[in-house]
Design a protein around this nucleic acid. Structure first.
Ligand SMILES: [Zn+2]
Ligand SMILES: [Zn+2]
Ligand SMILES: [Zn+2]
Ligand SMILES: [Zn+2]
Lengths: 140, 140
DNA sequence: TATTAAATGTTATATTATTACATAAAAAAA
DNA sequence: TTTTTTTATGTAATAATATAACATTTAATA
């Protein structure tokens, strides 16, 4: 969704420091076809940075998560670039059990449903994550 | 939701072997107020079984997951007894960020929404997991 | 320039989960 | 019942995922 220049611009605007490990980690995640795991990010990072250690990868991951440019797919322990504009409270993913592809598909109806259900139950929702497993069109 | 006798009965009916580690692990999870982590299950299991090792806990967890008596709360790496009748394709959890309580709240509207969105996208959903973070009524 | 704040480098370790193989128990077949 | 097969467990080792702690560097700001 985001080109690198856009991200650089957004970071500058917000005075977020766009350091080398951060930029390289974002590139690695963005270029990955499917969600990528932290230690695979780390391996690829080794091509760009001398002998990187886990905290280097995890800190960069955390940075991009905090600013909503990437998502963590909880059921896969893996990370994927946001494809829906970098700031939504809820996320929805269609995960293909066969090929591992993950399609981000943020429905705006979901919040309404939540609102209803949670008003009744007096639970105040702040953010959510929906992971749907199944088969993509390629695989079914 | 389930009393132990019911579970024993269901296991017998289905010829699922209800061994000691399985039964003790189910009790530990059921008695836990909040979702409980695998290694905390293991610690409690040590009060019942001599020097249990991780596979003992994980195998029992897997057994109860397979038969849908417990859920894994993905964002917490923790397990909780199913409170909605042991066989639904989708699950929804309200997770309190403050006290850690998790309310299972399986809306039946959700599948309809999914159906629509996924028909368009030609993705065939098989199961799903929705985790909503926020504040429970006690904590807000 | 000096001071402070933020980020990184590095080592170690914590947490979560699985593999592999031997043994035991239960179910099924003979 | 005995034998055979299947399923489950015990145990040791290790894999996979993630964080803590502290020294050093880099950038922001005073
Ligand atoms: Zn997104
Ligand atoms: Zn697929
Ligand atoms: Zn349930
Ligand atoms: Zn609460």
């Amino acid at each position: 969704m985001f080109k690198e220049e856009q991200i650089i611009k957004i970071c500058k605007q917000n005075k977020w420091r766009l350091t080398e490990p951060r930029l390289e980690v974002l590139r690695i995640i963005s270029l990955s076809k499917n969600p990528i795991k932290a230690y695979d990010i780390l391996k690829k990072l080794a091509n760009k940075i001398k002998n990187p250690k886990p905290p280097t990868a995890y800190r960069a991951i955390q940075f991009w998560q905090k600013h909503k440019f990437i998502h963590r797919i909880e059921s896969l322990n893996a990370y994927q670039a946001c494809s829906h504009g970098h700031s939504h409270v809820g996320a929805q993913f269609l995960i293909c059990d066969d090929c591992g592809k993950v399609i981000e598909s943020n429905l705006h109806e979901i919040p309404e449903i939540l609102k209803k259900s949670t008003e009744n139950k007096t639970f105040k929702p702040l953010r959510w994550n929906l992971e749907i497993n199944g088969l993509c069109n390629q695989c079914s």
